[in-house]
């Protein structure tokens, strides 16, 4: 068993409710309509958004709204032991939950019969990869000029013993008692992603949600700051 809490600190020396360092790079992929690199400490995800663009074959088109296609993938070199490349059960599931989150954040009816292709590639995985991908995609969507309700802020929380922690790394994800993936639109107060693995009491869960909301605020501010900074320099 790994000792996850030592002298009131977590394995990487963080406090219980402390995020890892956020790093954002805007538009690293010139070919995409919008792209971003987002990282929480050692977890790095790069995302690109193409579209809205025309969609063929025609039977795939939605009459009144746009189709969102998401591909979440982990690079073979992203984890400690080599990950078998390609699509697997896990990446299909994560692509789906990210897709649902994006579909509920954009104004889909503005782009009928089109497709928005979203790609998220995890370059380095150290826990919380799905929320990191979602944060990168949020910035990419905004840069692609797609109409959305709000920037999507995503974060994870978990439980070790009786302590609630945020932004889990790989060790805490593997050996912790519970982990929650969470994403929300702060403006409309809508939760667009909520997954829970493990066991947690009701009052602990409600407390975790409260902490997550606070942390999402920080993440959203960071996204906003970077986007504005980019356009002040490059527009």
């Amino acid at each position: 068993m790994v000792e996850l809490i030592k002298d009131g600190k977590r394995v990487d020396g963080r406090d219980f409710e402390e995020l890892r360092k956020i790093k954002i790079e805007v538009n690293p992929i010139p070919n995409a309509n919008g792209s971003a690199l987002f990282s929480f400490g050692n977890t790095i995800a790069i995302a690109a958004v193409y579209g809205p663009r025309s969609l063929y074959p025609k039977f795939l088109q939605e009459k009144e709204e746009t189709l969102v296609r998401v591909r979440y993938n982990m690079a073979p070199f992203s984890t400690e032991t080599r990950k078998n490349p390609g699509i697997d059960r896990r990446s299909i599931e994560i692509s789906k939950v990210i897709k649902n989150a994006i579909e509920n954040s954009i104004f889909s009816e503005e782009y009928p019969r089109t497709v928005i292709d979203c790609y998220a590639e995890v370059l380095s995985g150290d826990g919380s990869t799905r929320v990191t991908s979602l944060n990168a995609l949020s910035i990419s969507l905004a840069l692609a000029g797609i109409k959305m309700k709000d920037l999507i802020a995503a974060c994870t929380a978990g439980r070790i013993g009786d302590k609630i922690i945020v932004d889990l790394n790989q060790l805490e994800d593997n050996y912790g008692d519970c982990d929650i993936s969470f994403a929300m639109l702060l403006n409309t107060n809508e939760i667009v992603l909520l997954q829970l693995d493990g066991e947690i009491k009701k009052d602990e869960f409600l407390y975790a949600l409260k902490v997550l909301k606070e942390k999402c605020k920080i993440i959203r501010e960071e996204q906003e700051r970077k986007i504005k900074e980019y356009f002040e320099k490059n527009a």
């Binding site: 309509n33 919008g34 905004a142 000029g145 797609i146 109409k147 959305m148 709000d150 356009f231």
Partner: peptide, 24 residues
């Protein structure tokens, strides 16, 4: 009222000019 897009509000203008890269 809230903005839908990344855009620029110029002084004395009443629209948000998109700073996007897709042509609509």
């Amino acid at each position: 009222k809230y903005s839908q897009i990344v855009g620029l509000i110029e002084e004395k203008k009443d629209i948000i000019t998109p700073l996007n890269f897709t042509y609509l």
